[in-house]
Nucleic acid binder design. Sequence first.
DNA 1: TTGTGTTGCGGAACCGGTTCCGCAACATTT
DNA 2: AAATGTTGCGGAACCGGTTCCGCAACACAA
Lengths: 329, 329
Amino acid sequence: MKQVTIKDIAELAGVAKSTVSRYLNGGSVGKKTREKLDRVIRETNYEPNQFAQSLKSKQTKMIGVIVPRLDSYAASRTMMGIDERLTERGYQMLVVNTAQQTEREIEQLYNLAKQKVAGIIWLGTTVTDRHLEAIEAIQIPVLLIGQQHDNVHSLVYPDYEAAYALGREFTKWGHRDVVYVGVSEADIAVGQDRRDGFLKALHEADARVTVVQTTFKIEDAIPVGERLAKEIGSTSLIICATDNIALGVLKGLANQGISVPNDISVSGFGGYDFTEVLHPSITTVHLPYRRTGAKSADMMLQLLQGNDVPMKTFTIFELKVRESVDKLN
Amino acid sequence: MKQVTIKDIAELAGVAKSTVSRYLNGGSVGKKTREKLDRVIRETNYEPNQFAQSLKSKQTKMIGVIVPRLDSYAASRTMMGIDERLTERGYQMLVVNTAQQTEREIEQLYNLAKQKVAGIIWLGTTVTDRHLEAIEAIQIPVLLIGQQHDNVHSLVYPDYEAAYALGREFTKWGHRDVVYVGVSEADIAVGQDRRDGFLKALHEADARVTVVQTTFKIEDAIPVGERLAKEIGSTSLIICATDNIALGVLKGLANQGISVPNDISVSGFGGYDFTEVLHPSITTVHLPYRRTGAKSADMMLQLLQGNDVPMKTFTIFELKVRESVDKLN
DNA sequence: TTGTGTTGCGGAACCGGTTCCGCAACATTT
DNA sequence: AAATGTTGCGGAACCGGTTCCGCAACACAA
């Protein structure tokens, strides 16, 4: 079953290759030849060779997606959304994983460009000058999700605002002595914006806040929970920067026999679906990962058509008030 | 920054294109020319155009990966493993999502072949004649993960054996009245093998078993849990076909005020990492998704080199005895 | 009828590599 | 010294498309 080529089609229809090509790309073709080509192509199941096309056009129907990890809830959901939309529109998603190494993000920007992807969607963690340099150099539309920068089209979660809103609820409910469990500032959205949003709300209510740091991994949060369990004192609430961290902290607390929310409250951030199903269910803020993925694909397709799209777009968020945080008053 | 071509290199070095090509592909090249080309290529950062290469060779350095869903724990972990290994070896992973539609699996087999991927790793759910036909037709190595078939190289989880082993533990602990919450038989490994493994163990101990069916979605398992809560009777254990189902069932039970494992026991299957961290932690069997992904990549690379690999390879499993299942005796 | 504009189509060059073939230069054997 | 074998290299064709250019055929206006 060898490849049918445009030459074969041309011969079968008794025309020149160029005519077939024109037919395929909507050029001027007479009625009779059109009908003939219609038939021949249908009968032969002809499909153009993508390499030959790309060789000439220096373009593909692929969108590169750079993700920091393949096994994060946020990344998976976002990829689903991207893929859905792209597939509808005849594009393909080429996922590359950087295993959380910033260096590899930069490499991959160049690499994807070399592969002539039509555009790149980048689930970022941090934006450095080297990133910007790469984006500048490759001359391909890049769309950043989850972080923001003035020089790059970005689709960003309102981390600061959401954290602030949730923080306000907490103080409204009477929490005044709080531990915040965050991550490294290297991740701007999660490490800085979320923290700062919470801090703002808490400070406005003159709450006492202790900040501790951990990683994105569940395992690392467990000892944090265990430690906190021993020094609860007057602390009424532990705010976690992500739902995974909340999960770990909850486990750590449980290991020490602390009951949530009776002994202490715990909140998450992100809205992973297991948070609803846990017992106690976790108070958190839901970020629309999947919809954002789909939206990013839409925006990318717009960019590819040369339409302009706003440099910065914010997504929505939704507070999920559930069982793990108690109302003290 | 336009593309440097082989022609540029040839001119700069004062040789013919063919010589450059030979140099690049390890053909016979004299010492002097070699040195000259060494230099020129380094200085120009020359990188061969992959489309031109693929156009001629009808091959790429990509491995297609067909997954039923992008947001499943098993798929994510497996993809990580695949990607890790492939990247090391200079290959790329091209993920395509079928959104659980069997039809799209078949489509994608053809489609990936059209894109001249070097091989296809297929995280299967069911194997039909049309699949086999496609695999036969495309003439590309296909490696099946998670399901098995005599005509396709498969890397399979010992679902039956693992289920049997876990079932034996349960009966050993005195469970004799059990509900099994499974999924559709369309998924052979999960819908049939796991169930049958458990059933065998349970029947050997003359246990009473009721089988109920749900889907892979957490939400769908919640009402199942709620219903079971109302009709516990003498049932001492609910065995769930996946950890996600267990999660849903646990939620349903909790909604009705049933406490696990005090009032009833619940087990999962799969070993998703949250199972360890939940409270109570879930008794389950751990399947090495990530390692299996890596292994599948290895095997695929072997196949590509023409080495032969066994048609069927089983992975290991590991029982995780934890809190959610009680020992009655 | 002649001149002008439009439309349809074929030929050839091109995209950037790989590979086959044959020749020249040199080394080796007799 | 002649015959034979190796090795290094250039030229040309090829992979399967796209696009530019120019020509022929036809329609229509003058």
